[in-house]
Design a protein around this nucleic acid. Sequence first.
DNA 1: CTGAAAGCGCTTACAG
DNA 2: CTGAAAGCGCTTACAG
Lengths: 337, 337
Amino acid sequence: MTKVTSLDIADLAGVSQSTVSRALRESPLVNPQTRRRIQLIAREHNYKVDISASNLRSKHSRTIAMLVHQESEMDSDINPFFVSMLASITRAAAARNYDVLLSFQQLSENWIVDYQNSNKAEGIILLGYGGYTDYIRKAELLDDAHVLTWGPVIEGQPGHFIGCDNRQGGYIATRHLLSLGHRLIAFLGDISDDCPEIQDRYFGYRKALGEAGIRQDEALQAPATPAERSGYLAAQELLSRDVEFSAVFCSSDLSALGAVKAFREGKLSVPADISVVGFDDIPAVSYTTPALTTVRQNTAKAGEIMVDVLLRLVNGHTVQSQLIEPELTIRASCRPY
Amino acid sequence: MTKVTSLDIADLAGVSQSTVSRALRESPLVNPQTRRRIQLIAREHNYKVDISASNLRSKHSRTIAMLVHQESEMDSDINPFFVSMLASITRAAAARNYDVLLSFQQLSENWIVDYQNSNKAEGIILLGYGGYTDYIRKAELLDDAHVLTWGPVIEGQPGHFIGCDNRQGGYIATRHLLSLGHRLIAFLGDISDDCPEIQDRYFGYRKALGEAGIRQDEALQAPATPAERSGYLAAQELLSRDVEFSAVFCSSDLSALGAVKAFREGKLSVPADISVVGFDDIPAVSYTTPALTTVRQNTAKAGEIMVDVLLRLVNGHTVQSQLIEPELTIRASCRPY
DNA sequence: CTGAAAGCGCTTACAG
DNA sequence: CTGAAAGCGCTTACAG
């Protein structure tokens, strides 16, 4: 069976090939009746516009590339938050008739050149490059390339970023605990310069404490990466310090999950003995016992915005880095002090 | 800045455009020195072969599409097992110089036609369509289309499947528990015809019990979907029945995680009071306490095989549905009875 | 080993 | 509203 082309459809419909092309692209130039007839014939014959020919001629690929960062080749343990982002970006792109190319690897100049200059994709979205700010900073390429990164928005930083208002997120999480009467609130997370997003959550936490007239106690801070295991260890570390606290703000849901487990093993009940707030609102934490109170990053909305902004970048508009407002999602892991 | 084409490179190198094309595709027809020179010039000018033009002319897209099944629009909670598969397929494709298009949605005839006839992708991989056997059965399209599904291999079934030898997996999991002296072994999972993969795990479990001369007690079976919440409820159900058992084989890691939690809440320690074996070996279960003994589905290998088989299908070879051998991964969730 | 030429299947001015 | 024609940037016989 030989391939059906627009010429075949034209013959069948008794019109010219250009008219077929127009009809299938919903051009208003074509007589509505003719258009419908052509579309019907095309469907009957399972005809689809050849995307390569279309792309070549029109110089658009209607495709974006998504690059998911992977530390190591072997590590398939992707934060569920990024899986949600991936899904929502893909859906947002599909809604705009864009396809999504997926790749897991390290960012390299080469990769960007490859995807842009080869016309494979009109733009690129970077996911999970949180720790790579330095690297991104170096790549001047990012400035004229159509690259959008999910990550921290830092003053004067080259490239284009969309991220969560992490400072606000840390602030509302801590305010919530304060409003429940907690005064000794621990913080779990890596506040080094390597993790500007976590740092911002920490700054929000400090701001809320400050406003409540509470001096932050360094002994109530323990580093943790966004991983269950890490939260578990950090919580144990906290317990071993033998400082008092009645609540913990964890800078990620995964670390919160680990912390809850550590507390439980230490015969401390959540929320009876300790209140816990997480960050991200990954799908899993609404099912846990207790369901986790957390700061929701709206991935569906984030996906929409990222696709919109990337496409505006592609179309030559100047775009602004943008922060997405987090929301507190109250569940069952906190209790009044 | 106007686009660099192979003609520009040809001019710069003082050769014909055909020679540039050949050189960049590593054709042995080109003088090695000339080839190197051309490649150098191309790199200097950030020239990349226009993929649309190349695809149009050569009639290959070197792209495969991955369709991940999503029950509902809102459900971004994808089983980590499929995330691993997604990553490993993408990497296997990249190693063969293939790009991967990603889509999350329901399977529809339309979708397949769209991707194949439009030349967007040479073949399609379906992920997470376990419950959709009926639907797939109906789609005769699948037979001549280049579609490969991760799922159960069923005698006489149309289409092409790669899956885990689930029966063997259930068998080795149960044998392990038997070898530790357990006799009363519960099973968690949905054994309806809707889930042939879980059914197979159940058959393997029964086979092992049978060989050990143990009559399977129906009261020791509780339905559970591959979700933590579901495993949690199923384990509670089991406990409420007040039947005795010293071990549980859970048909997924996610349900095993939930079961462990339920046992713990019921003041039963794993593995001291109850031994638990899971299935999948998702990344998370090696970090839990106790680390979970489970049946490993080797996703890296599965990804390689799926890409290989799909590409052979694409190239017109007949391919055989294939089962991947599971391996028992012993960790800390089981103890001799 | 190299080049001239055809042509993949579309989109889009241009003319009517 | 419709058609004839050019041309997107390659790959690949074909000829030498």
